[in-house]
Design a protein around this nucleic acid. Structure first.
Ligand SMILES: [Zn+2]
Ligand SMILES: [Zn+2]
Ligand SMILES: [Zn+2]
Ligand SMILES: [Zn+2]
Lengths: 173, 173
DNA sequence: CCTTGACGGTTACACTGTAACATATGCTAT
DNA sequence: ATAGCATATGTTACAGTGTAACCGTCAAGG
């Protein structure tokens, strides 16, 4: 209750909750709740597989590969062929409930779905944690550079690899 | 350490040369010359396969997949198995003579090798051109966000998809 | 000469992603 | 109600991307 500054932070929206100690159960519960709300608002069908896939992503503060998600889905009685996972993940990404981490060929739950945001990802190379941070400032800078050469940005991915606070202290060198 | 700024000299990649009309032969010739210089300075062995792989990348202002490069290498009498291309490309990337475009699983020649730089890529979804631009401002913004959550950035990839000037005018919308 | 190490060639395989088709389910129009 | 349609989930089979491991060549050095 006390230390979670994770909820809405309209303008800057940066939280990187994954790097701070927090009540992780809330990540799952609130994540699902936000998704339900978005689905209701936008008339999306958050079916069993899709919901479970999102839940699987929410349970990890790292990016999961499609086949990792697939294994867990299969263990829960869903199909065990690749398209099962890819379709669920594509749905989540398309509707902003999850993000694809290009660098890892993997997926992570969106921490702030529903609002338009230009997320940015911080990937710890030591513990594999992935945090979503607010990329408004970065996006603005990017648009600036693009404008100088006449390029119109539609989508952008910004991914940084490095060390999270915990692993830095642990001397991840 | 977080001092990754590109040298402030003029005429550098900032111009996103790929999007402007230019004498393309010079791209290949000067690109190879720059690579030779870097190799000489740093004691790298720019062998035949590696040089040819770089030349192949320089001839295109788009990103080429490893297997595309492999086809061309094979056509020139080099090996026709994947590791041939991957090893050459890994070498080029590792020494800053080429970059990997995560979003496309592809590679592109570096337009400004030798200097430490934080490149940023503009990818046209209509004509597939890829331009390398100067990412210093973006990188600075990124470092700022990362610092706020205690994350130490080591490497970052910034890739934007959209429309290049030409395709915008052509109504690529 | 013989070793050493980097390089480039090979085979074989692992991982990631998709096309195409079949079945179930629920909504709509008659 | 029921026929028709769209969506979603499941399947098989395959395409695309990337690596591990091994082997012969060749240059440098004892
Ligand atoms: Zn959590
Ligand atoms: Zn970490
Ligand atoms: Zn050119
Ligand atoms: Zn274009």
């Amino acid at each position: 209750m006390s230390d979670v500054r994770e909820s809405a932070d309209p303008g800057q929206g940066l939280t990187a909750a994954a790097f701070a100690p927090h009540d992780h159960k809330r990540c799952r519960v609130e994540g699902l709740a936000r998704a339900e709300a978005v689905a209701a608002t936008e008339g999306l069908r958050l079916t069993a597989v899709r919901r479970r896939a999102l839940e699987i992503l929410l349970e990890a503060h790292r990016a999961l590969g499609a086949y990792e998600v697939l294994d867990r889905l299969a263990a829960d009685g869903f199909g065990r062929q690749p398209p099962v996972a890819y379709r669920a993940l594509d749905f989540l990404v398309e509707h902003g409930l999850a993000h694809r981490i290009q660098r890892l060929n993997a997926y992570t739950a969106c921490m702030n779905p529903g609002r338009r945001h230009a997320p940015l990802f911080l990937i710890c190379r030591a513990c594999n944690a992935v945090a979503e941070a607010g990329g408004t400032r970065v996006r603005t800078a990017l648009e600036g550079v693009a404008a100088e050469v006449g390029f119109a940005v539609e989508r952008a991915s910004v991914e940084a690899v490095g060390l999270c606070p915990a692993c830095r202290q642990a001397g991840g060198a």
